[in-house]
Computed example of a mutant assay.
Amino acid sequence: MPGQRADARRNYSHILTVAEAEVAAHGADASLEQIARVAGVGSATVRRHFPTRQALLEAVFHGRVQTLCERAEQLGRAEDSRAALLAWLRDFVAYAVAARGLADTLAHESPAQESAPSSCATVLEAAGAPLLSAAIRDGAVKEHVTFHDLVTLTVGIALATENHSEPAPLADRLLRLAIEGVSPRGDS
């Protein structure tokens, strides 16, 4: 936004505020036309600021994703790598459940896909992968677990619970179940 005129910056901020509300209400499929109508601008103005739906969603989720990244950095200093990774995954699941549309956005990015350096998936991986690596190094997580596995698990939990009347407690229960497994200790 540097170098933009003041009215363009105001339009951007206003469109983003409206988009955040629309995505919260309707998820990743929020209508760009409805966003333009509510913002009181033309759809061309929305597309000038956000040329793709993905660009709009990345902007909507940017602040919260940064908070998750900061949390990963704090947890990276913890002595217990397993506890740090699990705390971050709980935060990740809680946010994915609370922020309608994020899970759907992440579900469409495969690990082989070349993401923009600032995409939610790329930024989250840069923050969370060191936590996973530390837990693997310490023998707290199996070596074959990938960061993409954890994102897929998180996305699956968020998508499976988003239409429940109280998705957060159910999502937390499903994450605990995934961590603990379904078999009693000793069974394979």
Rank of each mutant, 00 (worst) to 15 (best):
A126V: 00
A78C: 10
A96N: 00
Q54K: 01
A55V: 06
A78R: 14
A103S: 09
D138H: 14
A78V: 08
V145L: 13
G63Q: 12
V97H: 02
E114G: 00
G139Q: 08
L57E: 00
L89N: 02
D104L: 11
A103D: 10
Q54F: 04
G101V: 07
E114N: 02
Q66A: 14
A55K: 07
P51I: 08
V60M: 01
H144A: 03
K142F: 05
V93C: 08
V93N: 10
A160C: 10
A107M: 10
S133Q: 14
V41D: 04
P111F: 02
D138W: 09
A121Y: 14
G139W: 03
Q66P: 00
F50N: 02
V46H: 13
L150G: 02
R90Q: 15
H148V: 05
Y95M: 08
A44E: 10
I136P: 01
G128P: 07
F147K: 00
E70W: 06
T146H: 10
R90I: 04
V145R: 14
E143W: 08
A129R: 15
H148G: 14
R90L: 04
V41Q: 02
L85R: 05
D91V: 00
L153K: 04
G42A: 12
A158M: 07
V123G: 05
S118W: 15
G63M: 03
G40R: 07
